[in-house]
Design a protein around this nucleic acid. Structure first.
Lengths: 207, 207
DNA sequence: TAGATTGTTAATCGATTAACAATC
DNA sequence: TAGATTGTTAATCGATTAACAATC
């Protein structure tokens, strides 16, 4: 019996993990669902239910041990692995992500950068040399890269996705503002900044 | 009777709008919910239901006129307004967003940049001079800025949010990986890249 | 033991889907 | 008119919340 875990739960699990890790690092050893809820604006029942999906991590009458949570939830989210990532499209956004320190702290290691612009190829960003996208497949394999990040313009996104899939990528993080199709066994997470900004615009207009 | 529109509907509405706009610009005059669905991977019923929440935009037996949709949905989302935006925190991510062209095409105009680092203050990014965050309130008012974008490190995010609220900001787009509290009448959209990357990690680990 | 807090079963709520009448 | 497609009411599905037993 393998229950299908909703996207909503997984998103919250990532929030829990970040909190647990910071609590653990601050020396907090135990925390109740009540207190987690206060910090994250999530109801305690929701938190207990979410955590109970994956096991019995708590102690009745006591709460949750942060050390236990960090290791267990970290395992569930795969954050105790080390993932190698490549960014395809070293424009402003790609370049920014390349320099974004936060990823490294969670086991995500940027290992390659690709572009098709000969003016960019060969230059260094965040200590990594930009490669020609035509060499993507061999480099992805050689460097054992599991995650591909798409930061090319929308019209080129599907082509890049196809290339990544051919290279055996394990997962894709897409920043291009367009729908891309990949085989169902390849996880795909879309980061649609324009869409999110539009929802903000909607709410402001309603005030 | 003012129905509460779910976040899910608004997000899809933004996706519809982007499609309708591009169809309209390509000279497509009419489209059915069936065809919209194929392009966006959303069921036709869902699309009709979403659109019907805001009015009767379609023609039975015919479909939807793209020109009608662009103007109507654009109005609903507030994308026919012009919004002035400010970025607080001109690090890698803030700098990248400052250079991100996509926003400008939808009426979002970057009008100010703020930082607290004296080495950055005074420099130009995307043609805009970086101001001292201490002058935030007066500049926000003078330049009539409605949207504040937070791209400072997590520990500073709440302070920046408070500053923005005091300055009379109409909406906040938060990229700091932390929960921030603002008065309920100020719309807040969170962009949590680390969380989304964790969900990708989860799915890859499961394969 | 009494108090606190988890984990789970049942109830509710909200969102999606199915069915179909309306009508271009 | 017949075919196509919308808009809406009813049914289903899934996620959240409430209630409470279990137990540290």
């Amino acid at each position: 019996m393998k229950p299908i875990i909703s996207q909503a739960i997984i998103g919250r699990l990532a929030l829990y993990f970040r909190l647990f890790k910071s609590l653990y690092e601050d020396g907090v050893q135990v925390i109740s669902s009540e207190d987690i809820g206060k910090k994250l604006d999530i109801t305690p029942v929701q938190i207990r239910k979410d955590l109970a999906v994956f096991g019995q991590f708590g102690m009745k009458g006591v709460g949750y041990y942060t050390s236990e949570l960090v290791s267990q939830i970290g395992n569930i989210l795969g954050l105790n692995n080390r993932w190698n990532m490549a960014i395809v499209g070293v424009g402003h956004l790609g370049g920014a992500l390349a320099n974004y320190k936060n990823f490294e702290t969670n086991g995500f290691k940027l290992t390659a950068l690709f572009d098709k612009d000969t003016r960019i190829i060969g230059s260094y960003v965040h200590g990594i040399q930009v490669s020609d996208v035509r060499n993507l497949k061999s480099i992805m394999t050689n460097r054992n890269i599991q995650i591909g990040i798409i930061t090319v313009p929308a019209p080129e996104a599907q082509g890049v996705a196809n290339l990544l899939v051919e290279s055996g990528v394990k997962g894709i993080w897409n920043f291009a503002p367009t729908k891309i199709n990949v085989p169902s066994e390849i996880p795909l997470v879309n980061e649609d900044l324009a869409m999110d900004l539009s929802t903000l615009s909607y709410h402001i207009s309603r005030e």
